[in-house]
Design a protein around this nucleic acid. Sequence first.
DNA 1: CGACTAATAATGGAGTCCTGCATTAGTGGG
DNA 2: CCCACTAATGCAGGACTCCATTATTAGTCG
Lengths: 387, 387
Amino acid sequence: MNIGGGDLRRLRHLNSLACLRVLRGADPLTLAEVARRTGLSRASAVEVVADLCERGWIMEVPPTRGAMGRPARRYRFRFEAGHVLGLDIGVHKVLAAITDLDGRVVASGRTPVSPDVPRPERLAAVDRAVAACMETAGLAPGDVWAVTAGTVGVVDRKGQVTAVHAIPDWAGVDLIAHFGATFDAPVLVCNDSNLAALAEQRMGVARDVRDLVYLHAGRRPGAAVVLDGRLHHGFGGAAGEVGMLDAVGWLRMGEHLERSPSFAGAAPDEVAGLVFGAARQGDAGALAAVERYAADLAVGTAAMVLTLDPEVVVLGGGLSRSGDVLLEPLRRALESLCLRMPEIRLSTLGENCVVLGAACMAIDEVDALTLSADDPLERARHTSMAP
Amino acid sequence: MNIGGGDLRRLRHLNSLACLRVLRGADPLTLAEVARRTGLSRASAVEVVADLCERGWIMEVPPTRGAMGRPARRYRFRFEAGHVLGLDIGVHKVLAAITDLDGRVVASGRTPVSPDVPRPERLAAVDRAVAACMETAGLAPGDVWAVTAGTVGVVDRKGQVTAVHAIPDWAGVDLIAHFGATFDAPVLVCNDSNLAALAEQRMGVARDVRDLVYLHAGRRPGAAVVLDGRLHHGFGGAAGEVGMLDAVGWLRMGEHLERSPSFAGAAPDEVAGLVFGAARQGDAGALAAVERYAADLAVGTAAMVLTLDPEVVVLGGGLSRSGDVLLEPLRRALESLCLRMPEIRLSTLGENCVVLGAACMAIDEVDALTLSADDPLERARHTSMAP
DNA sequence: CGACTAATAATGGAGTCCTGCATTAGTGGG
DNA sequence: CCCACTAATGCAGGACTCCATTATTAGTCG
């Protein structure tokens, strides 16, 4: 974090980073644009850009035709220069996705897992999903620059899973060691709700927002907090666990739906969907159940909103598919509890939110390592992909 | 925020800032030390330091005697180069303090104010307190580099007071304009609980902590949040207002104390102190009242703690003087509600916490302006103080 | 086909940083 | 009282990066 203080080489390095950063923002840029945006002179921009090309961080693209004057060379960031792996290790399923440095999914896979399989088998299922993705993407382990594993449970700052209710023998699993054995790259571990929140802020409905509260509405409700564009984990990694508060009552919240008299016989897994479906049709009993559910959800949400006063609350999780029914009751309930009502938005990322968030975090890690002022920014490791 | 990208002059500027920053950390340093800590060569450090001396940002101090070899020249940051003004505009009182750039109080004053004086008179009382401080410190308005006003009520991101319950006509007051008329310096406005929290993190019991929740236990309970060493205001400036939540019940919390049967006749202002005093003596009724108070306080605190999982909770405010009685019941109540129990510490800053926090924020502003990579770092404006 | 436009390429000048060596101001022992 | 030792100081020389300016080139438009 020691900015400033340095060599001439360091100045060059800083300027390289500045160029890389402006090019990182998606669109191809001409040299003149790069110079303008970085504040560098044209001559210096030429040198820096040539150097970055040389090292494989950026590449030239064909000039735009039809413009006045001599056509300008254009350059873009080589998103395909590197890849990251994102994982979502859930109770009932395991998801894996490989993306490029822009977060575009190159390969992905999903494997159902029984909630009570022992730890080694769950890890083996993850490994199989990962291997399948690598195969599809045509990548070797060395081509993956960072790995992030999302998991249920509380994850402390050292990346250890400290507390899990949903999977019997999952607490204490050392995912860093597990994936570190396969990949020679930084491995990060994070709670799944947190990653979903991150995904919303980076590529979801909250891209324009710095401070948000994410609600995971499902059978195991959860929440997460993004502040100033960055995930807030908390000192012990337990931020967002408002559901634990007795006065909030998220633990027994699902009962409102499951006890709905109209569907006494249905399987517990499906009741929620049935109730929301009935509510959509105008069934009075179902509507009342949804209302009660929303009221409970709102209490915990209000606790977070009053604590943080976020700009936006994002509603995600399995039940967000029924957002059309749930949103309005939630908004009404929240309105009566809050000092300043935040905007409420519905997630659109669906089931992939956690893997995508994992990929986002991995990309952040890559950026932090390669684009940090302290680090070398050496040659981009070329992947084994076709050019 | 545009780091990197620049001129040779800019590199020099960055190096100047790096030197200034290492010297900012209190102790006088030798040239060799400055060079080592900044990573600069000795020759460059000499130039930069001479330049900073020239401009009045640092000064030479006598060398240490008794060491081996030729005595090294030593330099220190000139904390007395500038001053800031901190204010605490409360319901019953107005506090003002002038500090140097290290946060050392140079002059301070306190004026009692009736809760129902109209806005102009309250502002006039503030102005008198400020004038007295300036007089004592021997400063002219031009010598003040930044002003921060702490006030009751919610303060939005533009510095406007948007909602106040305790003072009738205070909402909508434009403190930036008011103080901007006197001082040709940045004027910041902030909620008082927030500033108290900042003071704890900078010069109080939480100096070693990055994430903390601050509890203001008093007749009008409040709370504030410091994350990653910086105040979290919230989108509308209303962060920390958990007390509003019905389920939490901070609004009627004081009743536990005021209704304590032992002191039915006493003035409402004094009951709390009496109850805590009696509890300290072992009075059963008083102990029960404190217990109930702590239980209510714990519910709101738990909402914040579960949301954020902070490292530390700091207990401040008027009732923190009775911390010896209140702390243990609070800890017990909180323990049963939290997933991970944070450390609880008792504030030691007393009544000055808000003014000190205001000074801290003003100093931060000065640092941000003068030490930022984008700004000129021209000559330090010399105060009219004696050298 | 020529005028116009805007990017490219090349040169010279200025500023900052680093390394290395001789010099200087104290300390401590004989 | 003088001398060896220590650690900081002061002063070159050399290297690198950046900028401004000017001449050149590759397209479009009339």
